[in-house]
Amino acid sequence: MERVPVDDVDPDPHPVGVNENRRDLTDAVDADHITVTRYELDPGESVSAGLYTYRDREEIFYIAEGVMTFEHHPRDGAGEPNHLNVEANELVRFTAGEYRCGRNTGTKPVVGIVFAARPPLSETERMESLAPCRLCEELTAHRVTDPDDAYRLTCTVCGTEMRLG
């Protein structure tokens, strides 16, 4: 059994600056089969740099304080996005392959925790982002490559690369 005060875990801001108070609690409690990440989002901050999905796992977000707005798309990324407000003391589950991004669109901080299974692949080996491709001239799925100094996104339709960060 591991017991760790959340405030004892150092914040790990998102690599491209979309949030400042993200805490990866997974290693703090020596978890092997689940990831646990706590977010405290100020107004205007988001969980990720844009719409993303994991091809092999679902995620469950628990909102402890405030209201988080999720933009989400079906598995193929087609069509118009849907928006869902998740309030304090509510959960939302996203399936593998469903694109999503949580944002604080309000005026007060949002505190949330995301739980997910921890498969053997690295985060980015199983991650895709939905982004506009300059060559395809539309929103397409992009594979995400581990950042060295920036995330590298590669369009799954035409192979065009772009860098974030």
Rank of each mutant, 00 (worst) to 15 (best):
residue 80 E to P: 08
residue 80 E to M: 08
residue 61 F to L: 10
residue 9 V to Q: 09
residue 18 V to Q: 03
residue 9 V to S: 08
residue 8 D to G: 06
residue 160 T to N: 11
residue 132 P to F: 15
residue 88 A to K: 07
residue 67 V to I: 10
residue 80 E to H: 09
residue 94 F to W: 10
residue 84 L to N: 10
residue 160 T to I: 06
residue 98 E to V: 14
residue 33 H to K: 06
residue 31 A to L: 15
residue 31 A to M: 12
residue 12 D to V: 07
residue 6 V to R: 04
residue 100 R to L: 12
residue 140 T to P: 00
residue 70 F to H: 03
residue 65 E to Q: 10
residue 129 S to N: 11
residue 145 T to N: 07
residue 43 P to G: 07
residue 34 I to N: 04
residue 78 A to R: 01
residue 120 P to S: 14
residue 132 P to T: 14
residue 95 T to Y: 12
residue 130 L to H: 01
residue 16 V to F: 09
residue 135 L to Q: 15
residue 15 P to A: 11
residue 118 R to K: 15
residue 25 L to Q: 09
residue 106 G to Y: 05
residue 107 T to N: 11
residue 85 N to K: 09
residue 42 D to M: 12
residue 12 D to I: 04
residue 1 M to C: 12
residue 115 F to E: 02
residue 115 F to H: 10
residue 47 V to A: 14
residue 50 G to M: 04
residue 85 N to F: 02
residue 87 E to I: 05
residue 4 V to E: 12
residue 32 D to Q: 13
residue 73 H to W: 06
residue 115 F to D: 04
residue 104 N to G: 03
residue 39 Y to T: 03
residue 144 V to C: 02
residue 30 D to Q: 13
residue 79 G to E: 12
residue 108 K to F: 02
residue 68 M to N: 02
residue 127 M to N: 01
residue 14 H to G: 13
residue 101 C to E: 11
residue 100 R to I: 01
residue 15 P to C: 09
residue 131 A to G: 00
residue 146 D to T: 07
residue 2 E to C: 09
residue 4 V to F: 14
residue 95 T to N: 14
residue 111 V to Q: 07
residue 37 T to S: 07
residue 47 V to F: 08
residue 158 C to W: 02
residue 49 A to I: 01
residue 8 D to W: 15
residue 52 Y to R: 11
residue 145 T to F: 14
residue 48 S to L: 06
residue 127 M to R: 04
residue 158 C to L: 01
residue 25 L to R: 09
residue 27 D to M: 05
residue 88 A to E: 08
residue 30 D to M: 10
residue 114 V to P: 00
residue 68 M to Y: 01
residue 133 C to D: 03
residue 47 V to D: 05
residue 59 E to R: 10
residue 46 S to E: 11
residue 121 L to E: 15
residue 5 P to L: 08
residue 29 V to D: 10
residue 153 L to N: 01
residue 125 E to H: 13
residue 9 V to M: 13
residue 83 H to G: 07
residue 36 V to H: 06
residue 85 N to P: 08
residue 37 T to C: 05
residue 105 T to I: 09
residue 129 S to W: 00
residue 6 V to E: 10
residue 97 G to A: 08
residue 75 R to Q: 07
residue 109 P to Q: 12
residue 107 T to I: 09
residue 39 Y to N: 04
residue 147 P to Q: 08
residue 136 C to Q: 04
residue 94 F to N: 06
residue 125 E to K: 10
residue 75 R to E: 08
residue 141 A to C: 00
residue 102 G to Q: 12
residue 148 D to S: 13
residue 123 E to D: 12
residue 46 S to C: 03
residue 50 G to S: 05
residue 48 S to T: 13
